[in-house]
């Protein structure tokens, strides 16, 4: 029978694992851990089928599951250090997927990551690879310098929406247009998290943020920028996809897309860009499960998921997605 292990003091009580479990195995405890959070435990251990959805969704890597003597493991490219993100923030899930891609391609020792300015500013502490901290928005330029200087390295940038689509728009577009053989992981949560919830270039129409307290007015701020669609129009070949991580199915799709993006770089094929729709429970003022649902109900309709460009096929038509 599969067994669920919860490392309770890593837990931030987001309850995403309880929500994702298809068999109601997990419940939140009545006691609090060392950080002051309630943590999950296997209330109905007999119901566990070993699907490991809880492992995938935990942003803090606090859950492991043993199935037939084999225990799930933390990816090697993910550092032991606990992430600083707010409870339920999807950054932790996305970090894990990036690390898994690096592990599966066996490139940990030749990968260099570029960290942005924003919530993931401390990403340089969370990956077990060489890392370079960039100034706000300039990660693609820094990545270009690394890759042009040492083409044998695998270089990726990890950027949020303010960093990539606002202040770093020029660097983003030009790195893509030059066809830099780098991988860009773009985390879009429609808000500036680190600075306290200001409007982002991807904030949805009418969405309230601290610098659009009356809701985003498209007459003054324009419509949210769809980065994947914008970049796919460049003639230079590229791999461009948009994914999400709000449930088990989308996490698996995201995992595949991120691995593919790195693989294109390993093979020296093209620039690769994966946009990941993400949450900001703190900035949006929602519980983590509600924030995950909000991605599906409010963001996906505006930001459709799928592959937008492929080096083999070129621009992917909507009907083919």
């Amino acid at each position: 029978m599969p067994t669920v292990f919860v490392e309770k003091d890593r837990c931030k009580g987001c309850t995403l694992c309880v929500e994702i479990c298809p068999h109601g195995v997990l419940e939140m405890s009545k006691e609090i851990n060392a950080k002051g959070y309630f943590f999950p435990f296997a209330a109905k251990p007999d119901e566990c089928t070993g699907c490991r959805n809880c492992v995938m969704v935990c942003p803090d890597c606090a859950i492991q599951v043993e199935v037939k003597g084999k225990v799930s493991e933390r990816p090697k490219a993910l550092a032991e250090k606990q992430v600083h993100y707010c409870p339920g923030c999807h950054h932790g899930i996305i970090h894990r997927l990036v690390a898994e891609a690096i592990d599966s391609l066996g490139i940990q020792e030749k990968t260099v990551g570029v960290a942005p300015v924003g919530c993931s500013v401390l990403a340089y502490d969370y990956f077990n690879v060489d890392m370079h901290e960039a100034s706000h928005g300039r990660a693609p330029a820094v990545a270009t310098g690394i890759k042009r200087g040492r083409p044998d390295l695998i270089v990726f940038s990890y950027q949020g929406d303010g960093d990539l689509a606002s202040i770093g728009m020029a660097e983003t577009v030009h790195a893509a247009n030059r066809g830099e053989k780098i991988t860009v992981i773009f985390v879009n949560n429609a808000i500036y998290g680190m600075t306290g919830g200001q409007m982002a270039p991807t904030t949805l129409p009418g969405q309230v943020a601290t610098t659009c307290p009356y809701g985003r007015d498209v007459n003054l701020a324009g419509y949210p920028i769809r980065m994947s669609e914008l970049l796919k129009e460049l003639k230079t070949p590229a791999y461009i996809a948009r994914v999400a991580v709000y449930d088990a199915k989308t996490i698996v799709q995201a995992k595949l897309a991120i691995k593919k993006a790195f693989d294109y770089q390993v093979k020296g094929v093209c620039y690769s860009f994966v946009e990941v729709l993400s949450t900001c429970p703190t900035g949006w003022g929602m519980t983590p499960p509600d924030a995950s649902k909000w991605v599906e109900s409010n963001m996906v309709p505006y930001y459709p998921l799928g592959e937008f460009k492929n080096p083999d096929k070129g621009v992917v038509k909507e009907t083919e997605r």
């Binding site: 303010g162 600075t195 306290g196 200001q198 601290t210 610098t211 307290p213």
Partner: peptide, 10 residues
């Protein structure tokens, strides 16, 4: 936006 002056633009 930039910390620690976000309260001004807000």
């Amino acid at each position: 936006p930039i910390t620690p002056q976000n309260e001004i633009p807000e």
